[in-house]
């Protein structure tokens, strides 16, 4: 792994992955250090979400190492990976629509047996997302898109993860809510959480990120600090150029 003397929280080295016979990721390498916000950006089909899914063990791993805090994640079940403190918030504000806010959060703490720790985690989530705290008995499917995204993020926090992977948290949200989601992401990071996020909204994502990776067709293309990538003329032209929509 290049730069940074510290051991990274999560590192991928030359990871290949795909769905059945179709290979999506080709030897992707990246790493995230403690307390960082790292954005993964790129066009459609770049393999951004696939990167998350191979980390979580949801799709076929074809090669390379995925190491999280000294544990090799390859071949582990998703529940084991979550148990190690790595949370994943899938794309599309996926909440359990027929369950209440509270039940959704309880599902997030499914692996936690200690009631008082669940209570503490829920209090923390309600402090971070006051709108969830105002309506714990509301059915999740009846909430607005932004609230559902907050709920999905809150659910990801219930196991007190060390690191969270956010897949397209701003997808389909109004500009005001996009701001709110990014603000909350920064707030979570300040609370000590290491955050890796995949975003179409590349400019906004890089603004709040310490570093970023640009993937293209399942391969590493560029990497650097958020500022460097924002200033890189190639990156600007390809992914940020013109008006970046929704920013």
């Amino acid at each position: 792994m290049p730069d940074s003397g510290r051991a990274p929280v999560l590192s991928l080295s030359e990871v290949s992955a795909g769905y059945g016979p179709i290979q999506i990721l080709h030897e992707v390498s990246l790493h995230i250090d403690e307390g960082e916000i790292v954005a993964v950006i790129g066009p459609n089909g770049a393999g951004k979400s696939t990167t998350f899914k191979v980390i979580m063990g949801l799709i076929n791993h074809l090669g390379g190492d995925v190491v999280y805090l000294g544990h090799n994640l390859v071949g582990l079940r998703p529940d084991r990976i979550l148990g190690l403190g790595l949370a994943y918030v899938p794309q599309g504000r996926v909440v359990f629509g027929q369950m209440t806010v509270r039940e959704n959060l309880e599902m997030g703490a499914y692996l936690e047996r200690d009631k008082s720790r669940i209570k503490e985690a829920m209090d923390y989530v309600f402090t971070l997302f006051p709108r969830l705290g105002e309506r714990p008995s509301q059915v999740a499917g009846s909430m607005s898109g932004g609230e559902q995204q907050m709920l999905a993020m809150g659910r990801g926090l219930m196991m007190r993860p060390k690191m969270m992977m956010l897949d397209e948290p701003s997808l389909g949200l109004s500009p005001r809510l996009v701001d709110e989601v990014f603000d909350k992401t920064v707030a979570m990071a300040r609370g000590g959480l290491t955050v890796m996020l995949v975003e179409q909204n590349a400019a906004r994502a890089l603004e709040i990120s310490d570093r970023g990776y640009v993937l293209e067709l399942g391969r590493n293309r560029y990497q650097g600090t958020g500022g460097e990538l924002l200033d890189n003329p190639d990156v600007r032209a390809m992914y940020l150029g013109g008006g970046v929509r929704g920013a």
Binding site: M56, L58, R77, P78, D79, L82, G83, A87, Y88, P90, V94, V95, F96, G97, Q98, M99, M107, G108, Y110, L111, R155, M159
Partner: peptide
């Protein structure tokens, strides 16, 4: 119930 609603999200909630 969670698995019925969305198996993959249940999985990332730690449900076996």
């Amino acid at each position: 119930r969670a698995t019925a609603l969305n198996a993959e999200v249940a999985m990332v909630c730690g449900v076996n």
